[in-house]
């Protein structure tokens, strides 16, 4: 389980996270929603230890990620995978090399073992045959799939998605949503996604948390949020401003 307690982060005078408290249950999908620039990605980067909090803590299965460095941090990260908003594939490597990168670094596997793992992950994301393509030859949706395959390659306990459907057309976005749901069911992997795409959030989320003005202002199921009467939540989910 991931526990976030009183997490605070500021950039100069810009207070982005002002005391976040959130629990992410194991084996389900938690979606953090919120408007653009509200700090969703900053929260995600704290969960995987790419950023250090000013105050508060993030604990992964009881281990405080903000308190560990070096080898300890890398070991913990081997249990996590992250899919970046822009996919962040290494553009000098092929699809095969991108997916196998983590495995080659951390595990002693033969070429045939590596090949079969990459093939298995590519089939999970419906991209068999793309092994030798370069990232520049892929569409936005394909890049996203390769990024998911790369994150899954080390069989992580947790997978983090940063805006998984941003900049994708509605059909491709729907396919990526379905893929995230399928993978969660097939692999029973604990999933955390941040998005401002409500269609996506309703589809993939078992739990939804809303982030606004640096705090979590709502936690519940997709059904609960639709029923919630809070003004700022209604404004966000209906896309209207109530005076």
């Amino acid at each position: 389980m991931i526990k976030i307690a009183n997490l605070k982060k500021s950039f100069n005078d810009n207070h982005v996270l002002c005391g976040i408290n959130l629990e992410i249950p194991v084996g389900s999908t938690t979606v953090v929603i919120g408007s653009s620039g509200c700090g969703k990605t900053v929260l995600l980067k704290h969960i995987i230890g790419l950023m250090r909090p000013d105050d508060g803590k993030v604990a992964i299965d009881g281990i405080e990620i903000s308190g560990i460095y070096g080898t300890g941090l890398f070991k913990l990260r081997q249990r996590m995978g992250m899919v970046f908003q822009g996919s962040a594939l290494l553009d000098s490597l092929t699809v095969y090399e991108n997916i196998s990168l983590g495995l080659r670094e951390h595990k002693r596997l033969s070429k045939s073992e590596l090949h079969s793992i990459v093939k298995e992950k590519l089939s999970l994301v419906h991209l068999v045959g793309a092994e030798n393509l370069m990232p520049s030859q892929l569409s936005g949706g394909m890049k996203k799939r390769v990024a998911i395959a790369r994150a899954l390659a080390i069989n992580p306990d947790y997978i983090l998605y940063d805006e998984p459907t941003t900049a994708l057309d509605p059909i491709t976005a729907k396919k990526i949503d379905s893929l995230i749901c399928d993978l969660q069911v097939k692999l029973s992997i604990t999933t955390i996604a941040v998005t401002h795409d409500l269609v996506s959030a309703y589809k993939i989320g078992n739990k939804i948390a809303m982030l606004a003005e640096g705090k979590i202002i709502f936690e519940g199921t997709p059904m609960d949020i639709k029923k919630c009467k809070k003004k700022e939540i209604q404004e966000f989910i209906k896309g209207r401003i109530y005076e």
């Binding site: 990260r77 970046f84 594939l89 670094e105 080390i154």
Partner: peptide
């Protein structure tokens, strides 16, 4: 690589 988060991606792969 830094601005396209590729360096962050390496870190998340524990590299």
């Amino acid at each position: 690589m830094r601005i396209t988060e590729q360096i962050d991606a390496l870190e998340t792969l524990a590299i």
